[in-house]
């Protein structure tokens, strides 16, 4: 009997912990070992906030030289293939953002010296929105967007 109660108590406090601490941010922090992983940027709730913490600025210039390959209509929001490519010079990093997701910043890729400005991955999208690619060069941020219609959202809930 006592044992059963203890189980319930444990379960309860665990659940409260998870919800209370901004979805695990506090809960997981002791295990966070990666210094380069930008927690503020990835937990940001909108695009400008995410960009400010990730790249130091949210001032982007639209540039059609950034090519985003993604489907016009994604039947399954859980798996949306996205390819970002550009022929710009001196690209330092590329970020992929789905602007209607709860945490819009999905991925950022830091390119080494030999890397070419090309990345391809598959992302989750909560609903129809723009996929935004942000390219960081030595002195500026450029972005481009492509709308993807999502018929079934991929973030569960």
């Amino acid at each position: 009997m006592i044992d059963a109660k203890r189980r319930i108590l444990l379960k309860g406090s665990l659940a409260a912990g998870t919800v209370g601490v901004a979805v695990g941010a506090g809960l997981l922090s002791p295990r966070m070992v990666l210094a380069s992983w930008n927690e503020a940027a990835f937990h940001a709730k909108d695009l400008p906030a995410a960009l400010s913490s990730l790249m130091g600025s949210d001032a982007t210039e639209t540039n059609d030289a950034i090519k985003i390959k993604a489907p016009d209509i994604a039947e399954n929001g859980a798996v949306v293939p996205v390819t970002v490519e550009t022929d710009m010079e001196g690209v330092k990093s590329i970020a992929i953002v789905a602007d209607q997701n709860q945490t819009p910043l999905i991925a950022s890729f830091d390119l080494g010296e030999s890397a070419l400005p090309f990345v391809s991955t598959r992302i989750k999208m909560a609903k129809t929105s723009n996929v935004v690619a942000v390219v960081q060069t030595a002195d500026k941020l450029y972005s481009n967007a492509k709308e993807v219609k999502v018929t079934i959202g991929g973030c569960g809930g």
Partner: peptide, 9 residues
Amino acid sequence: MTANWSGGV
């Protein structure tokens, strides 16, 4: 290349 990801991948 180093990729930093969220749960959105």
